[in-house]
Design a protein around this nucleic acid. Structure first.
Lengths: 193, 193
DNA sequence: GAGGGCTAACCGACCGATCGGTTTGTTGTG
DNA sequence: CACAACAAACCGATCGGTCGGTTAGCCCTC
């Protein structure tokens, strides 16, 4: 292997050095391992899964902590987009965003939820800086819900419950499809003004 | 050091070898470290905090995994007792246990919640056997709530929301006292038949 | 009741593995 | 050529776990 002469540009071979592509591969690999093993993953495993050497990984993310932070930031942003995709702008009443939040977390398949729900990450908050990120993100959501006309006692309960459902889905086997549907329905009702 | 002649039996020195006492000290130390650092704690730290040598720790818990399992088992049992302490048997209607569950998680101080809520443990479910324990415990709670006359869609939402609130309390700063009160009140209302 | 023998609690040195991170070298690209 | 994108060897620290040995507590016997 590592023959330098394999100039077969077809298939999924990077063919050329691509900074963004490599970074994305590293982030994706980290996220997978985060789901599988929690914060206990190793840099060597991430590098292997991303088909990069450990040196290459450290070239892009100089520190384990930097890598985790980048993954969490990307995950939170992606989740925010996902929620907004589930907001129905045709609903001309309060609670649109909160209902989108519920739909994003209590709707799709297990893989989709695991992909989008940062709540499913085990123990990432052990890192101080990551905890601050999560805290700031939680504040942003509260403001968003409030601006959408939902009282805090409502949004608090609905948000926490939806996250719990998503975590249960992502962990697998804790909850079945029928139960998810029931929870989704009642949470959507709770998210009405 | 290690002078065999220090026969000063005063103070909190164990004075004699005591299996149960040592085991409890080890479990308590593990639980503290689990809260502070998640699953990343080391056996050496546990031993130090429990004032036992690492050899002594491994004598009682032959494996790191065995130690974690014991802590989780004890925590779940203790939490179950705590919930039952919050059940008001004078309530002659359905939902007594679920309301006790809410009171146990959304009532007391941060320390108390952190002490009793297994949901506050970061990443313990990364160990396969621990995940099974948590799963079995979740099933027990569902049965209990059902036998208490609460439909699954109700208990699911309330249980998840209460756990989310408790986790937020335990993590600190995510939620303030007024919000906890609001959540507690609305969850208690949701836990009525 | 004094002492001998056995068990279990406990200690502390140590081992191989693995970790995060550094350094040095190589290769492709503009 | 210069520089970014890697690779690979390597380093010190630390981890979970093992092992040989020590000692406290208890039972049995005389």
């Amino acid at each position: 292997m590592t023959t330098t002469g394999d100039r077969a540009p077809g298939r999924d071979q990077p063919a050329t050095r691509d900074r963004d592509r490599t970074r994305r591969a590293l982030l994706a690999a980290t996220e997978q391992l985060l789901h599988e093993r929690g914060t206990g993953f190793s840099l060597a495993d991430v590098a292997t899964r991303a088909e990069v050497s450990k040196g290459g990984l450290l070239h892009h993310f100089p520190t384990r902590e930097a890598l985790v932070i980048a993954v969490v930031e990307a995950g939170l942003a992606r989740f925010r987009d996902e929620v907004m995709r589930h907001v129905d702008l045709a609903e001309n009443r309060a609670g649109k965003v909160l209902r989108g939040y519920v739909r994003a977390l209590c709707g799709s398949s297990a893989e989709a939820v695991a992909t989008f729900a940062p709540s499913a990450w085990h123990g990432v908050d052990a890192v101080a800086e990551v905890a601050a990120l999560l805290h700031a993100d939680a504040d942003r959501w509260r403001e968003t819900f409030a601006r959408d006309g939902i009282a805090p006692e409502r949004s608090l309960v609905v948000q926490f419950a939806a996250e719990g459902v998503a975590a249960a889905i992502a962990l697998g086997a804790y909850i079945n499809d029928a139960e998810v549907d029931l929870a989704r329905t009642s949470l959507l009702a709770l998210a009405e003004p």
